[in-house]
Computed example of a mutant assay.
Amino acid sequence: MTASPAYTVDVRRLEAFSAVDLYAMLKMRVDVFVVEQSCPYPELDGRDPDCQHLRLLDGKDLLACARLWRPVADAHPRIGRVAVSPDHRGKRLGEALMREAITACERLYPNEAIALSAQSHLMHFYEAFGFSPTSEEYLEDGIPHVDMLRPPSPGNA
C-alpha cells in the first residue's frame, strides 16, 4: 500500500485564484475530463463562479481538485469535478481528496446530506465514503453515471 504524500488543502472561491493557479486547475480538469476520457463536453459550464474550489497542493504543485457547491437553496450541496493529476496517480490522492471534500462540505453546509454524480465505474469508490446510489444509471456526455447521496455525518447532523 502506497502512503499518501504530504499535501496542503486550499479551499477558495474562483475570484480568489491568481490567473496562474486558475489556469493550472482548469487545465488539469480539461486534461482529465475532456482529453484523457475523450469526452468533448462543456467543461467550463458557467457554474464555477458559484462554487468553492478545493485543491490539494504540494507546494505550488497541483495534485488534485474538486468543486463544492449548492446548485439552488433547496438542493443538497454537491461535490463535483473530482480530479487527480495524471502525474500524481497511484498515491491514494483520490481518497485524500474525497475525505477533504466531505470535510469541507460539512464545514460549509453543516447538517446537510452531500450529493454527487458518479461515473458508474467509480460507484464502489464513493460507496466507501458513505454515498449510496439514488438513481438508475444514465448517460451524461456519453459516460454512464449514477446519482449518489451521503447522509450527514452523525457528529455533523
Rank of each mutant, 00 (worst) to 15 (best):
116 L>K: 03
91 K>A: 15
23 Y>P: 04
17 F>G: 08
135 S>P: 09
100 E>N: 03
71 P>G: 01
43 E>V: 07
30 V>K: 09
51 C>K: 03
102 I>E: 07
135 S>L: 04
98 M>Q: 01
109 Y>M: 05
98 M>I: 08
64 A>L: 04
28 M>G: 02
143 I>L: 08
65 C>E: 02
74 D>S: 12
8 T>M: 03
22 L>I: 10
120 S>A: 15
81 R>D: 05
5 P>D: 10
94 G>I: 03
62 L>W: 10
32 V>R: 08
58 D>C: 06
110 P>W: 04
89 R>G: 00
49 P>A: 06
40 P>Q: 06
75 A>Q: 14
38 S>K: 14
66 A>W: 05
2 T>F: 06
111 N>H: 14
118 A>P: 04
102 I>T: 04
24 A>T: 12
104 A>P: 11
26 L>S: 04
11 V>K: 07
101 A>C: 08
139 L>V: 05
132 S>Y: 00
4 S>K: 14
130 G>C: 01
60 K>F: 11
89 R>M: 03
12 R>L: 13
18 S>G: 11
59 G>Q: 14
120 S>G: 10
11 V>H: 10
95 E>P: 00
26 L>V: 13
44 L>A: 09
92 R>D: 06
65 C>T: 14
42 P>S: 10
39 C>F: 03
73 A>L: 13
63 L>P: 04
93 L>R: 08
55 R>E: 08
69 W>Q: 14
85 S>E: 11
85 S>L: 12
113 A>Y: 12
7 Y>T: 01
97 L>V: 01
2 T>R: 10
38 S>L: 13
94 G>W: 00
55 R>N: 08
119 Q>Y: 10
43 E>P: 01
76 H>W: 13
132 S>L: 07
56 L>R: 11
84 V>K: 02
62 L>V: 11
137 E>K: 04
96 A>I: 10
82 V>N: 00
142 G>D: 03
131 F>H: 05
30 V>M: 08
8 T>C: 06
58 D>F: 07
135 S>I: 10
72 V>Q: 15
113 A>F: 09
